[in-house]
Simulated assay, not measured.
Amino acid sequence: MTDSAFATDPFVRDSVENWLRELGSIKRLAPKTLEAYGRDIGQFMSFLSGHMGGAVTLAFLKDLRGADIRAFMAERRNDSLGSRSLARVLSSLRSYFQFLEREGILTSEALNVIRSPKIPRTLPKALTVIEAKQAVSMAGEREDRPWVAARDMAVIALCYGAGLRISEALALRKADLESTTLRVTGKGGKVRMVPLIASVRAFIDSYLGLLPFAVNTDEPMFRAIRGGVLGPRPIQARMELLRSALGLPQTATPHALRHSFATHLLGKGGDLRAIQELLGHASLSTTQIYTAVDTERLLESYALAHPRG
């Protein structure tokens, strides 16, 4: 929240810090989400400071008008911010002012007259079953170090075979492995159990058998070349090589494998509620987007195969 450090009086600055602390400790928002919210409020306070010609005070926040919010949003749009990012900015502002109201600090009606930007609906880009299987089986190609090849195959197998986010896969510990299930810590620290199919377990066991570093059961088990905790970039780079080798689209990323997991399950008659649990979605409406993906794929097949298509 560096922008607001010079743009607010101490009381307002403290209120922002308390709000962010609540989001982290009670609502357990992810660190990157907290960072984005803090940045949004910092930019807002900086804008208001220039708008009013001085440090932002509670009195000014209390007298805030809808026109002030619109002016700030217009400035952010002029900075080439897209609708999705603008919607997040507005969500940050609403969250902060709701906090002020809950704490009995002030009440403002300014945000009630602001509509959220319309966000164009984008469907996840899933790979075909053959493409996804090839991505997993060939993830170790052109890698001279057997343990690195096994590592990349295991992580990519987890994205497709268990539907994990790449961050969830990289955070796995040996202690999270059970005979037929995985204990996965998702967004907001929520823990879910995911089935561990035999082929994915085999990839993990192969990696652990080749791993040249000693890793405790309570530490992330996927390791970088020098033994540190593995970050996402090497796996993303591996997918880039696979895109080139297999002729996959630019949308073929580790996260696309998670989309493929959900889409292929649904296509085989998987229950939407069960898929929601497997993906760790808080809301069923988030999972329902895959019904549109499956319908779109069905219509494409129909158009290609039907004599009158």
Rank of each mutant, 00 (worst) to 15 (best):
Q98Y: 09
L100H: 06
E101R: 12
E103P: 01
G104N: 12
I105P: 02
T107V: 11
T107M: 06
A110I: 00
L111H: 05
I114L: 13
R115Y: 03
P117I: 14
I119Q: 14
L127I: 03
T128A: 13
V129C: 00
V129G: 00
E131D: 15
E131W: 10
K133E: 14
Q134K: 15
Q134A: 13
Q134H: 12
A135P: 01
V136I: 14
A139H: 04
G140S: 03
E143N: 07
A149Q: 05
A149P: 00
R151D: 01
D152W: 13
V155C: 09
Y160M: 03
Y160L: 02
G161H: 06
L164Q: 09
L164W: 10
I166R: 02
E168N: 08
A171P: 04
L172M: 13
L172A: 01
R173W: 09
A175I: 09
A175C: 09
D176E: 07
D176S: 11
L177N: 08
L177E: 09
E178P: 00
S179F: 05
R183P: 03
T185Q: 11
K187R: 12
K187I: 05
G188L: 07
G189Q: 07
R192C: 01
M193W: 10
M193A: 11
V194N: 04
S199H: 06
R201H: 04
I204P: 03
I204R: 08
